[in-house]
Design a protein around this nucleic acid. Sequence first.
DNA 1: TTTTTGACCAACTTATTAAAAAAGTCAAAT
DNA 2: ATTTGACTTTTTTAATAAGTTGGTCAAAAA
Lengths: 209, 209
Amino acid sequence: MSENDKKRELIIESAMRRFSHFGIQKTTMNEIADDIAVTQPSLYYYFPDKTSLIVAVIEKISNEYFEELEKKLKDIICLKEVFYKIIAFRKGFVERYFMLHLTDPSSDAIIRENCSGILNNSRRKETDIVAGFIKSSVNRGELSNVDPEKMSALFLDSLTGLSMWIIARSEKKLYPGTEQLQDVEIRQQELADIFLRGLKYKGTNPISV
Amino acid sequence: MSENDKKRELIIESAMRRFSHFGIQKTTMNEIADDIAVTQPSLYYYFPDKTSLIVAVIEKISNEYFEELEKKLKDIICLKEVFYKIIAFRKGFVERYFMLHLTDPSSDAIIRENCSGILNNSRRKETDIVAGFIKSSVNRGELSNVDPEKMSALFLDSLTGLSMWIIARSEKKLYPGTEQLQDVEIRQQELADIFLRGLKYKGTNPISV
DNA sequence: TTTTTGACCAACTTATTAAAAAAGTCAAAT
DNA sequence: ATTTGACTTTTTTAATAAGTTGGTCAAAAA
């Protein structure tokens, strides 16, 4: 890694810290420059504008997400364990990066407009990962013959939606409280259980599908 | 119904029309007064302030919701049919009252602050209704022994969350488009199917619960 | 050549205020 | 009991001035 790249990283890391603590709007290029003891114009040597720095940060966060997630899921095959690990991991991620409002409809327009591609890719990637586990489970004969991609997307979107809705319903605060996040995790686990077990029919299926 | 009550109703109906078309903020008491050909002070004879009119409107909408919903669900016992009817009904409801942003975290503060009780009650009531159907289904031996209240709340919250998330992910417009609402319905139906059938295990359950 | 910086400008926010519009009141009329 | 004209108060909106931030550039430093 060249000196140049190192400095770039330093800038991104400082921006990441400030963005995730104060939010993007409340972070100035000068503050980031001060953090790493250079003047503000130096930043513009590495990033043409603030937007591209934001994009770089979101990209790094996305990479970090999958790096850590894949580490967590390594050597796991049990689908229930996979689901629960993802839920727990997402909780930690929300705690860390809530201020970025990455899944929030009322997020900064700048994120929606410049990072939708990254976020869409992330969603697709996570869907693919979970789909892989579902597929394995199907192949092992544990699950009925379902469309892994579709089920995966439905599961993950339902998790995200459930989280959004629970947090939206709670008193609007700057950060979701510990109990709220706890509640989100529990309800998401319940939903995971439904996905795994469903409302099992006894005997033959009385409801035509 | 007294003359007084009739006029009250007239006011509420006009407010309902304007609120659901233009939104609460963009509707003035004068416009409502004009609609029913009285002067603005007359409204204040029936409602002490705008807030109480808003509350009355939300209350009426909530009542209308359950009245129509219970009509739709009358004589239905098949749980799948119940789920699908609710999903279709909610779609129509979102179309009609989207401008009120009743489930939106970025909704008018006035709604959050004054109508949270009504909205919480509505949520509880709908949960109870669905729980009743689930209970019946359990009693008929169609479903395994689940907690109907819990399952009902989980199902409905997941539906709402999924809807929020799909609409949030789409291009932010004034109104969600027809295709988006269509997509929401389809995904919600898929989720309903999961709740009904789950990812069925073949043979004995290999995943400990 | 690569990187950094002081000095600068332009674009965007925030604060302030004035004007307009809305909410809300009340005594008198119906 | 209900409605209204005339009114006051509160809230929004519009305009604009002051300050901040994003962004540029030629020259200096490494």
